[in-house]
Design a protein around this nucleic acid. Structure first.
Length: 580
DNA sequence: GCCGTTTTCGGCCCGACTGTTTTCAGTCG
């Protein structure tokens, strides 16, 4: 078992214990341990071998023993016991908004309900409102929550699916029988939610069975679901399906393109090819002179007279036509990013010092970062008061002296209060180099109130960037009710920057809205919202969203040199304050 | 569950909001 799988086990234990009504601190210990394991650079097995598990923060004797058991046997008696005691359906109920462990327990003990289906039936039959602590509103909220859960795209966020996909692909690449291998499908296109991992490998027909068998025994694999000639589908420990497709080497380019999809893009290619006298099938490209030998996808597009279409742009929109005209955007690349404008230090709820963030940013070759801790209203995160901001400014100044080639913006992520006012006085905000504004409370406001709230905040001259504009948590929380059309209008009118939050649990704005923002002439910033130094690497997920949105360096302010960015912010503020 | 110049027990970010109540429990961030 690898780190992520063990972390997964601990998260399940935490949920089950919580439903059982165990001490919240014990529950938190498991969640904390899961977090530590998932962030660990080295395989936890190495720590186990050296008998150093308890040196990891949050891992004591009890958890170390459980990790050992998982590593040695692949299972855990304690978890098996909990699973017998708490039906799996109860854990799913925790995902319903407004439903926590106590409510789940009430429902289970009084009605004996243990699946979402039974729960929905009970809600419809108006049986929930009679339970202690529940009422009509909760009953309706549960019914609505189940509907939302159903309408959500299934699968896992890219940030969870990609590492597993990359590791599986890497393992396949190591095999001597595998001549070429590539990720395909949702993961390769950088979709925000991944329905299934697809890996395409070029393998001589005689070796296919052996390669498929190796895949079935790879790390992460819990069980084999289906096998057919040239393809096997497995279920991973993280609850996602992964398919390995083996193809004869000459067909690799076409099959890769076909399985990368989406179907609408492939259809557009087939149609384009046919109109020019080619026959394009998943197994090859046939021209008037016969079958073409293609050694790569690039050659496939070239043979069709098209510029290469980056997987992220494949959508069946107008990309084939643009490729024909040579008019595809020159997409933003990870190496174009020059800074990160949304970082939390240990002044609020981050774990890293400002110095540590600066060191990590310098290590990535950044030209600038912004320290943007929370404001006072977010007390759970130790949000900063005006007084502490003054103190922090001094520390930022000290760190600046240590990193002459890295500019530190003294920033702030100021809360947008329920009525749209900001959580800090204007003069305090005006002294910060960059101001992000965002919503962290009152998520249940109706659409009109929430929209007005955000528009009010955008109208404030102090605000430079609207952070995580929709508030969604991928697969966990839907966007709050807000009219993003109006938000885009206001951003465009006031010259505000919209954030693509690169945290893998957010990816907010998503690609569709980022595309529309660009079309409206709005500038974007891609920020990680990192709470520790390691998470600076999340930038790549944000770049992925930007690429799917068709963004170029020009569209993204933190792909600009420092002076241009500062000038942009300065001019915007000058205009805003002059008009206010 | 973990952790300790508060070290073997007693702490462990906390405050707002909501829906249920009629003074508060549960959820959320």
């Amino acid at each position: 078992m690898n780190n992520l799988e063990i972390a997964w086990v601990f998260l399940e234990i935490a949920d089950l214990l919580e439903i059982q009504g165990e001490s919240p601190f014990k529950v938190r210990a498991y969640r904390q341990a899961a977090h530590v394991l998932s962030e660990l650079d080295e395989e936890v097995a190495h720590y186990a071998q050296m008998g150093r598990l308890t040196e990891l923060p949050g891992i004591g004797a009890a958890l170390a023993a459980k990790i050992e058991e998982l590593l040695q046997t692949g299972s855990l008696a304690y978890l098996e016991r909990l699973r017998r005691e708490v039906p799996a359906g109860l854990r799913q109920m925790l995902a319903l908004p407004g439903v926590g462990p106590r409510t789940v327990r009430t429902i289970f003990t009084h009605l004996g309900i243990s699946t979402l289906e039974e729960l929905e039936a009970a809600a419809r039959a108006k049986k929930l409102r009679a339970l202690p602590g529940l009422g009509v509103k909760t009953e309706l909220a549960i019914q609505h929550g189940i509907e939302l859960l159903r309408s959500r795209p299934s699968g896992l966020p890219l940030g969870l699916a990609f590492p597993a996909a990359a590791e599986l692909s890497e393992i396949m690449a190591q095999l001597s029988q595998v001549q070429k291998v590539s990720l395909a499908g949702d993961v390769r296109r950088g979709e925000e939610m991944v329905g299934q991992i697809i890996i395409v490998a070029a393998v001589a027909p005689a070796d296919q069975d052996a390669v498929l068998k190796t895949f079935q025994a790879a790390p992460y694999v819990r069980q084999t679901m289906r096998t057919e000639p040239g393809k096997t589908t497995v279920l991973l420990g993280i609850g996602l399906e992964a398919a390995l497709i083996t193809v004869p080497p000459p067909a690799f380019a076409c099959r890769l393109c076909y399985h990368t999809g989406p179907p609408a893009h492939w259809s557009a290619l087939v149609k384009w090819a046919r109109a020019r006298g080619f026959e394009l099938t998943p197994d090859g490209l046939r021209g008037r002179e016969g079958e073409l030998q293609l050694s790569s996808e690039e050659e496939l597009y070239q043979s069709l007279g098209l510029a290469f279409v980056a997987p992220e742009l494949r959508a069946g929109r107008d990309e084939v036509e643009l490729a024909a005209r040579g008019a595809l955007p020159e997409l933003l690349r990870p190496e174009d990013m020059l800074g990160d404008l949304h970082l939390h230090s240990n002044w609020s709820d981050g774990t890293e010092s400002i110095q540590g963030l600066a060191r990590a940013a310098a290590g990535r070759g950044y030209a600038y970062i912004a320290i943007t801790d929370h404001s006072q209203a977010l007390s759970i995160a130790h949000g900063l008061t005006p007084e502490r901001l003054v103190e922090q400014e001094k520390e930022i100044e000290e760190v600046r002296a240590n990193y002459p080639h890295l500019f530190l913006f003294s920033g702030i992520e100021v809360d947008i209060l329920a009525d749209g006012r900001l959580d800090l006085p204007d003069d305090v905000l005006a002294r910060r180099d960059i101001v992000l504004a965002s919503v962290h409370s009152g998520f249940k406001q109706d659409r009109e109130t929430m929209t007005r709230r955000i528009l009010t905040a955008l109208a404030n001259p102090a605000v430079d960037i609207l952070a995580h504009p929709s508030g969604r948590l991928l697969g966990r929380r839907d966007p709050y009710a807000v009219d993003l059309e109006q938000v885009l209008d206001a951003a465009q009118r006031y010259g505000k920057i919209l954030e693509i939050n690169a945290s893998p649990e957010r990816l907010d704005l998503g690609a569709e809205w980022a595309r529309r923002a660009k079309e409206a002439g709005i500038k974007l910033a891609i920020n990680t919202d990192a709470h520790d130094a390691r998470r600076l690497a999340d930038m790549d997920w944000g770049v992925c969203v930007a690429r799917r949105a068709g963004l170029t360096r020009e569209d993204v302010v933190n792909a600009w040199p420092l002076e241009r960015l500062r000038e942009y912010v300065r001019l915007r503020r000058e205009r805003a304050y002059a008009n206010s």
